[in-house]
């Protein structure tokens, strides 16, 4: 039983990290007032690019960076559509998902289902571990540590720095930020692109670190769970960490149960993260704090010349 428990706990971070990275990216974007549904597509392009670069014989670290860049690039398109051209943020987000998934599929046709050596876990070439802590630690990889650092970094940036203050002001009250000399459009674009970089990192993590292979559809709804996770976390990076661990635990449960030979209905188990997300959404609205933490200008279009 304790063997199962350690195995389960050890598997959680690898499931939680991509959700958390994407959620952090979306938090950056949404705290600046840009409703961001694009994660699923941005992650797809990040995953494909990361895999394609590594399969071309380039170091996995650079593959990850390429995934980050691809995510930032696609998000730049999204940002320009919604910030400069004031496109509907919901529709533009869905379209970005479509374009991301479509581009990944079309451009990645030569890289499908080809295993490669990506970023390894700490225990990849170590002797089998004995202690529980050692067993836990050897199952992790460097990017999981990076993710933890990023949680602190995003939180610190938003709450403590002047740029973070400006970003939050843009998301709360763009008119006031504008009068204060903040370039509302540039801040929003920057926030969306930085968020896209994190979503790209999340996607690249899935292919280059977690699976060492790329297949179409490998994001499998994780981007959408990240969108829900942001609501659960009430736009706070620290609560996103907590939420990602809960979702990661749910996602890791099915495979771990199967691994120890428990008779579980595979596909019903796979519903768990989705059902849990839905339950969490319902709960967070039942608590009644809905709306109080949402950035006040989320999803709104800002135009200086509007008569107020």
């Amino acid at each position: 039983m304790s063997g199962f428990l350690v195995g389960w706990l050890a598997a959680i971070p690898a499931y939680a990290a991509p959700l958390l990275l994407a959620a952090l990216g979306l938090i950056l974007s949404e705290r600046a007032g840009v409703l961001n549904l694009s994660a699923e597509g941005v992650m797809a392009i990040g995953a494909m690019t990361g895999a394609a670069v590594v399969l071309s014989g380039i170091a996995p670290t650079l593959g990850i960076l390429a995934g980050v860049a691809a995510g930032a690039g696609l998000s730049l398109v999204f940002a320009i559509v919604v910030v400069v051209f004031r496109g509907d943020q919901t529709l533009a987000g869905l379209t970005t998902v479509a374009v991301g998934i479509g581009l990944a599929g079309v451009l990645g046709r030569d890289y499908v289902q080809k295993p490669f050596a990506g970023i390894e876990r700490f225990g990849a070439d170590a002797a089998p571990a004995t202690g529980a802590f050692e067993r836990f630690f050897l199952q992790q990889d460097p990017l999981i540590l990076v993710t933890l650092v990023l949680v602190v970094a995003v939180w610190w940036f938003l709450e403590r720095t002047r740029a973070g203050l400006q970003l939050r002001a843009v998301g709360e009250d763009p008119g006031t930020a504008d009068v204060a000399g903040v370039d509302v459009q540039m801040v929003r674009i920057a926030a969306v692109v930085a968020g896209g970089a994190l979503c790209g990192l999340s996607g690249a993590y899935l292919s280059v670190a977690a699976s060492h292979v790329w297949v179409e559809g490998m994001i499998a709804g994780r981007g959408w769970i990240a969108v829900a996770l942001v609501i659960f976390a009430r736009w706070d990076a620290r609560r996103a960490l907590l939420g990602a661990l809960i979702f990661g635990a749910a996602e890791a449960l099915g495979p771990r149960l199967q691994a120890v030979g428990a008779p579980v209905p595979t596909y019903l188990m796979m519903m768990l993260p989705y059902a849990l997300t839905l339950a969490v959404l319902v709960l967070s609205s039942l608590v009644g704090r809905r709306g109080t933490d949402e950035p006040a200008a989320l999803g709104s279009i800002y135009l200086r010349q509007d008569k107020s």
Partner: peptide, 24 residues
């Protein structure tokens, strides 16, 4: 041409992007 069927969703996405920008 061995092109992934993801091209369908990509084409629709590009057209929608075009319309979203043009509506501005």
């Amino acid at each position: 041409y061995g092109i992934s069927e993801a091209v369908v969703v990509l084409l629709q996405g590009l057209v929608l992007f075009g319309v979203l920008v043009a509506q501005f």
